[in-house]
Design a protein around this nucleic acid. Structure first.
Length: 271
DNA sequence: ATGGTTGGGGTCCAA
C-alpha cells in the first residue's frame, strides 16, 4: 500500500474548502499539510475534513495570518508545535506516524511556513527580511541539536526560497528579489545540509529542468508568461528517501476558480 | 522604473 502526502499553501483554508474537496477527489491524497490557513484553531473547518475522510487533524493556527495544519486519513501518535524567533507566529507543526505509513519505521512529518521576508533584501532596513534569516538560522540550529533527520523524517512546506537557478523563471533577473538572493540560498543550503535532508522533488525532476510551484497573482496570463518560482518543498531524511517513489506538481490547480497562488505538491511513499 | 492581485479584517498590512 502506498501513502500519498500533499503539501499546499492554501492562502485561507476556509475560503478554499471547495478547492480542497476537488483536489481530494482528483488526486486522492492520504495526508495533507497546509500552510497559510489564516484562521484560529476554533474556526478551522475540521468537520469538513472529517466528512471528506480526514478525521485526524492537527492544527496550529492564529487569527488572520500564517497558520499550518496536517489533515490525515490515518492516525498519528503525537503532535508538536515549535515557536520560532519568539514571535508567537503559527509557522510549524509536526506529527508522528506509526510504522507502515511512510516507511517501515515510525516517521515524523514537519510542516513549515517560513516567513516571506518582505520586499527589500537587506536585514538592516527590513525587519521582515531579518526575521526570515533568523528563522532559517533557528531551523538549522534545531535540526542539528535534535538530529531530526538522522531517523525517519519528512519536511514539507512553503519555505519561501527558490534555491536553484531552475527554480525561478529568470535567474539573473531574480538575484536581487527576495526568495532568490544569495544570502537566502546560502541559508537554505545550510538548513538542508544540517540534516542532511534530501530534496525529494529534485530526485524526480533533474536540476537542469525548470520546476515551479508558485505563480504571482499580480501577473495576468500566468500560464503563458510562466514567471513562476519553486517556493514549496519536500525533504526527507536519507533513511526515508528510498521510500519516496513519485512526485506530482498539480500545476492545473493554479488555473482553478479563485485559486491559491501556490499549487499542491504530492509525493507517494511506499513503506 | 513601475505596478500589477489577493486575503483577512476592518478602512491597511502581509504576501
Amino acid at each position: 500500500m502506498a501513502t500519498r502526502l500533499a503539501t499546499w499553501n492554501i492562502n485561507s483554508v476556509r475560503l478554499r474548502m471547495p478547492l480542497i474537496e476537488d483536489f481530494i477527489a482528483q488526486h486522492k491524497p492520504d495526508i495533507i499539510a497546509l500552510q497559510e490557513t489564516k484562521c484560529r484553531d476554533a474556526e478551522f473547518p475540521s468537520a469538513d475534513f472529517k466528512r471528506l475522510g480526514f478525521p485526524h487533524v492537527a492544527i496550529n493556527g492564529q487569527k488572520g495570518y500564517h497558520g499550518v495544519c496536517v489533515a490525515s486519513r490515518v492516525p498519528f501518535t503525537r503532535i508538536d508545535k515549535r515557536e520560532f524567533c519568539e514571535k508567537g507566529d503559527a509557522r510549524h507543526i509536526a506529527v508522528t506516524f506509526e510504522p507502515g505509513v511512510l516507511s517501515g519505521d515510525a516517521a515524523t512529518l514537519h510542516n513549515f511556513y517560513v516567513p516571506a521576508g518582505g520586499d527589500e533584501p537587506d536585514r538592516d532596513i527590513n525587519p521582515k527580511f531579518a526575521h526570515k534569516l533568523d528563522f532559517l538560522d533557528e531551523m538549522e540550529a534545531w535540526f542539528k541539536k535534535e538530529a531530526l533527520a538522522k531517523g525517519h523524517a519528512v519536511l514539507v512546506g512553503d519555505l519561501n526560497i527558490a534555491p536553484l537557478e531552475t527554480d525561478v523563471w529568470d535567474h539573473k533577473k531574480m538575484l536581487k528579489i527576495v526568495s532568490h538572493t544569495a544570502v537566502e540560498v546560502e541559508r537554505f543550503g545550510r538548513v538542508q545540509g544540517s540534516g542532511p535532508w534530501v530534496d525529494v522533488m529534485r530526485r524526480f525532476v533533474p536540476p537542469n529542468e525548470k520546476l515551479f510551484t508558485w505563480w504571482s497573482y499580480r501577473s495576468a496570463n500566468w500560464a503563458e508568461a510562466n514567471k513562476g518560482r519553486r517556493l514549496d518543498h519536500v525533504w526527507t531524511s536519507e533513511k526515508l528517501s528510498p521510500h519516496a517513489k513519485s512526485l506530482e506538481v498539480i500545476r492545473d490547480a493554479r488555473g482553478w476558480e479563485r485559486p491559491s497562488d501556490h499549487v499542491p505538491v504530492v509525493v507517494t511513499f511506499v513503506p
